[in-house]
Design a protein around this nucleic acid. Structure first.
Lengths: 158, 158
DNA sequence: TCATCTGTAACAAGATAGGTTACGTATCTT
DNA sequence: AAGATACGTAACCTATCTTGTTACAGATGA
């Protein structure tokens, strides 16, 4: 299985929604992400449940932001997509009876917990608006439209 | 697939080899780990290549430690098993042309790199002997034999 | 009524660690 | 020399999880 890219994808989408779309259909978003509309609905369902976006059914419907980007942290989105596992490594069994194995897992678990705490702390203190600001700094003048067109073209060709 | 448990398993084995066996066959080790002899050979091949263990073929052969446990760090073993991915999350594509996506991945990548650096630093400063010492502290007096018998029984029943 | 959207179920694809079988080769014992 | 014991490795299957895809039901607006 490839690595879980839901967090990255959702951040990507939310910034585009803020900058380039007032309301976007799952189809439009799927073109942005290079994926499928069902995948978009599936992943964004969590964000809707947590109140970060709204969805409207039927003709003229789609997705829109329900909160300003400076009011949403990476941790919020991580939780909204269901707090998927952060680490690819771990113990072999959950509750080993072997005391050596317990000692190994405890030591390894300590290191992982530390790293996880650091990662989640970063997630907690970074808002999506912070990332959008990074984008503004990266973007050469007048590149906004060109950039927007990347996705527009994908949308047209799809 | 469940999480990669090779690091945990190898640490577990090395401590047992130090404490309970001077030389162990893949079959014996596989019983310890609740797995298969081929899996053991496959995983321990990396440790052999890095000089942490030796293997002897043929009658009377098996695996033995080639270095003291206080001379092997968790980082050593992590590298010996091929530095498998530490994180289960990551970007969707490797080199996105979208500048928003680049900004997202950069910010996310910074947080992940920090967490990875912390984790590897812990791996670097902890020796397997440190874990074995933790085991000694956990182990009530006289439990060593009982503990050893857990694996001995598994070996006998297999 | 019909086209447009979301909501979901169901299932296939892809990736990777782990499990299993099979067989080659080395080594010790007899 | 023969046989038993063990490692080395290829080949293939399994399990698990994200992602991709198809199909269809329900909601909404023209």
């Amino acid at each position: 299985m490839r690595r879980d890219s839901r967090l990255s994808r959702m951040l990507h989408v939310l910034i585009h929604m803020d900058r380039h779309y007032k309301r976007a259909t799952s189809e439009t978003i799927s073109k942005m992400l290079g994926t499928n509309a069902v995948v978009v609905r599936r992943t964004m369902a969590g964000l809707r449940d947590f109140g970060y976006v709204r969805s409207e059914q039927g003709h003229g419907g789609g997705w829109e932001l329900a909160r300003d980007l400076d009011q949403i942290t990476l941790l919020d989105i991580y939780e909204a997509i269901g707090k998927p596992p952060l680490f690819a490594i771990g113990p072999s069994v959950d509750q080993p009876e072997c005391l050596v194995e317990q000692a190994v897992d405890a030591k390894l678990g300590d290191a992982l917990k530390e790293a996880e705490a650091l990662l989640l702390e970063r997630f907690r203190t970074v808002t999506i608006a912070d990332i959008a600001a990074d984008f503004d700094r990266r973007m050469p003048e007048g590149q906004c439209n060109i950039h927007g067109n990347i996705h527009a073209e994908q949308s047209a060709s799809g």
